[in-house]
Amino acid sequence: MGNDLRALTELDRLIHEPARLLIVTILSTVESADFLFLQRETGLTKGNLSAHLSKLEEAGYVKIEKTFKGKLPLTVCKLAGAGRKALTQYRQQMQDFMTRTQ
């Protein structure tokens, strides 16, 4: 296996998944965002978004706070330090890969 391809195997698969990459990218731009905003921006269904957020939370990449606004539940998500670091590393790896293969 060439070095270029080997570099791909070292990618963080948790972030490499397109939906999760989108979620992490959105959260990297803001301080925090709620579930509704993430759902609209990603175009995912509630169930799908919940599942991806749970995986990211388990990995310590995202912090999720469940509160209430009036009678309605409000889920606010925030990118954790580990998530920000993982995204930066992922982008760098992808950039390097693209440069090498062009």
């Binding site: 803001v30 709620d34 509704l36």
Partner: peptide, 12 residues
């Protein structure tokens, strides 16, 4: 805005 399209708090 927030009830329609979601809440966002921006980073400084």
């Amino acid at each position: 805005t927030y009830p329609r399209t979601g809440y966002v708090e921006y980073r400084v």
